[in-house]
Every structure is written in C-alpha cells, then in structure tokens.
C-alpha cells in the first residue's frame, strides 16, 4: 500500500505539514498517514540524590521511584500526542481528504523512521520542531538524521503553505539528482508545474548530462528553463529562488560524507536553512 507519511510533533510547523501532505495527497492520489513519536522519556534523569548511600532494598526502592516519576510524565505526553493527532486528522479532513490514518509510537523519529517509512511514497517533515521559536535559523534537531536514514523522497516543509506553481531542480549529475529527474518524469507530484533546472558546473560531461536532463523533462511534458552557473551552490540557488519566486526546491540530499560535513558543513542543510520554501529531497 502506498501512502504519504506525515511526521508531526505538534509544533508551529504542524499546520503547514498537514497542508503540504494534503496537497501531495491530492496530486499523487495516496492516503495520508500521520505519525507522532513520543520521545523516550528516560534520557533525562529526574532525581538528584548525591548521597551515594544504599540502604535496605536499595534496588527496588530506586526502581519504584524512577517508574513512578516517568509514568506521570509519560501519561501527560501520551495525552498531548493524542490531541496532536486528533488535530491533524481534523485539519486533513477539512482539506477534503477522506483516507487519513494516525499512528502514535514510542521512540525517536531519527532512530525509528526506517521502520515506519515502509510503503511510503513520500515523507513529510517540518523544517523545525518543537524548539522552533528558540533557535530560529537552526534546523530541527532531528531533521538531518531523519533524512539521512530515509530511503524515500522527503518533503521538508516551510512554515507557511502556498500551493507550488513552479519548482527549481538543482542538478549536479549525481545519482540522487538523477533520482529526482526520474521522479519528476514518472510521478504526478510535480506534473504541470514550471521547471527551473539549475546546474553549477563548467565540467563539459556534467553539462552534457544537464542537457539530457532538460530533454527528458521536456518529453515528459514540463516547461523547462535551464540555467548553467559557476560558483557557490548555496548562493546560486538562494538567489534564483528569490529572483524567480520559486515555490519549491527539488534536490539530492547529503551527497557528501559525514567527515567532510564536519569541517565544511552540509550544502543541503544550509540551503534548507536559507530559503523559506519547502524542499523535496532525494537520497
């Protein structure tokens, strides 16, 4: 069964996640499943007893204490999660979707996404999560790890939803960019939208590939405007997005190794951060 998996945490981005999911659902005709993860509660110890003494029944006393403390918090989190999912269902139904399901699971999204993305055509995430207001300009704590572990296209939503009329495809000749072209050709999600195909290279082999990609898109019925630039990928893409008022950016994600990223930083992350538009990522 194919589906669109919308991952929510009830943050500021949630309404936009639902709207993007609804939009995608109508375009590719797939049902939406909303996933809410209850974060593991045991990561932050709650007590502070530095007495270092252990008395009669120390083990069971400590266990009881920990269970009691966490049970109270977990119950609250569970109730909150249910409310979030009910809200999601309401929003999606109001958007005119009939086939909406919800799912609440324990665990961290970045660790568990692999288990739930099975059979999903598209995964929808918010750019930022619960701490969005405190760390403006930073990415959601989970985002990169989730994207890295996903095998399916990921739609990272911006804070506001505007129905996309055109998209920018950043093409570098790599395998994930090739996947994006393939997706545009075969899938109905982007059909009928104006395509800006952008490549940053003066390597003739890549330029050849770029031309082939333009042809592929045109045969698939897209109106394509092609750009060949030199220089910084981030700048070129953010500039074009503003100049041409692009609605959606499509690109390959995290092509570089983790080591390089540690020193240079990730191109993908900085683009997601810089533009205030949704980004569709391919691995």
């Amino acid at each position: 069964m194919s589906k669109i998996l919308a991952c929510t945490d009830g943050s500021l981005y949630a309404p936009s996640i639902y709207k993007h999911a609804a939009w995608a659902s109508k375009r590719i005709d797939s049902p939406v499943q909303v996933l809410h993860m209850l974060n593991p509660h045991h990561e932050t110890p709650l007590n502070s007893d530095y007495s270092g003494s252990i008395g009669f029944g120390a083990k069971s006393a400590l266990l009881d204490e920990l269970v009691e403390l966490e049970a109270a918090n977990a119950r609250i989190a569970q109730k909150r999660g249910q409310a979030i999912l009910e809200d999601a269902e309401m929003v999606l139904k109001a958007e005119g979707l009939e086939n909406v399901s919800t799912m609440q699971k324990h665990g961290k999204l970045s660790d568990e996404i692999v288990a739930y993305e099975d059979g999903a055509d598209l995964i929808v995430l918010g750019k930022r999560g619960n701490n969005a207001n405190f760390e403006k300009g930073h990415l959601g704590t989970n985002l990169e790890r989730v994207i890295r572990s996903c095998h399916h296209p990921v739609l990272v939503t911006s804070r506001e939803f505007d129905e996309p009329k055109n998209f920018l495809l950043a093409y570098d000749g790599g395998s994930s960019a090739e996947k994006a072209i393939e997706y545009a050709v075969k899938n109905t999600l982007l059909k009928g939208m104006f395509c800006h195909l952008i490549t940053l290279s003066h390597d003739s082999a890549i330029i050849e590939k770029h031309k082939a990609a333009v042809k592929k898109l045109e045969t698939a019925g897209y109106e394509v405007e092609s750009y060949l630039f030199d220089g910084s990928v981030e700048e070129a893409i953010t500039d074009t997005v503003i100049k041409k008022s692009i609605d959606l950016v499509v690109m390959g994600a995290f092509g570089h190794s983790k080591i390089r990223q540690l020193f240079v930083g990730s191109t993908t992350s900085s683009i997601i951060r810089a533009i205030h538009k949704p980004v569709l990522l391919f691995r």
Partner: peptide, 14 residues
Amino acid sequence: MIGQSVINVKSGGR
C-alpha cells in the same frame, strides 16, 4: 558492580 551502578543511576548517571 551492582552497588556502584545503583549509586550511579541514583545520582543521575546514565
């Protein structure tokens, strides 16, 4: 060590 591990968890070590 059972005792020390209990002390560690009790003191907030994870």
